[in-house]
Design a protein around this nucleic acid. Structure first.
Lengths: 143, 143
DNA sequence: CTAAGTGCAAAATGTTTGCATACTT
DNA sequence: AAGTATGCAAACATTTTGCACTTAG
């Protein structure tokens, strides 16, 4: 389970530098491979997968699974305390893919409920609420 | 998108008969294949996948995608309004991988909150709460 | 020098598909 | 008879792994 990186390799630096230029943008492992291949500085796909895993583990990237047959989506959110913040949760629209960051005390209630009633320790940073955003709800209600 | 079955084949009947004996239970496509193989009446895996898809489409089964590397989970809820019951949610332990299936009114509150306060229509079937199960919580607090 | 990371190619995994055959209606 | 479903094996897509080699500390 200890997936943290210990060495500052060239590949890791390249990846981080790139991610910092695209905060909030969604990308797949394949996107990253392609980007560096086209740039003329290819990074092996196993390295990409391994670094992505590390970065998720370190909390530098978020990982979202849209559905089982679609490649996993990643997103750079920064290294900061952003995720230490316990009042933050994420909603992802199943239709347009929009990722919504919410700040709200309700998450604390959910967390307490899960622990008190079900002995489950919720990890709010890891949990993504799927559903429909306002825009897509309206669209699908009309036609 | 029209995945509905038109013929009542032997395989479909066998599947439905079995599902009716395990309402609320989680199973994967592989589980089903194995069950019928061991029973001495094997059903081809493509048939299993195709029937599962149909049954989800017809609203007879629910399908849950836990994460990209885990097989999809299905659950029989019945052919009736039963399936409109949205009191079910899923917790996945990040450590041991256990999937916990909870029936609880709280999910309705979360759903209402997300809609009332954030205009987000939660899809409880698609949403998985990540965290630590009781066993793993205890283990990590001690050893 | 040692531990960790890289990258290739191969394996693993879960699911879908092509097609000849068999079954439903 | 016509339309649909089956089941095998092969194809697919994504991700993981084994291993020899390279690199960071």
């Amino acid at each position: 389970m200890d997936q943290r990186s210990k060495y500052r390799t060239k590949q890791r630096k390249l990846l981080l530098e790139y991610f910092e230029t695209i905060p909030g943008v969604h990308f797949t492992a394949a996107d990253i491979c392609e980007y560096f291949r086209e740039k003329g500085a290819p990074i092996g796909q196993s390295t990409v997968y391994r670094q992505l895993e590390s970065l998720v583990d370190e909390g530098i990237l978020n990982k979202y699974i849209i559905d089982g047959n679609t490649p996993a989506c990643f997103e750079y959110t920064g290294r900061d305390e952003h995720r230490a913040e316990e009042k933050c949760f994420h909603c992802k629209c199943e239709k347009c893919g929009e990722l919504i960051h919410l700040h709200c005390d309700e998450i604390a209630r959910i967390k307490d409920h899960l622990y008190d009633e079900h002995r489950f320790r919720l990890d709010p940073m890891r949990t993504v609420f799927y559903g429909l955003c306002e825009k897509c709800t309206l669209e699908s209600e009309q036609g």
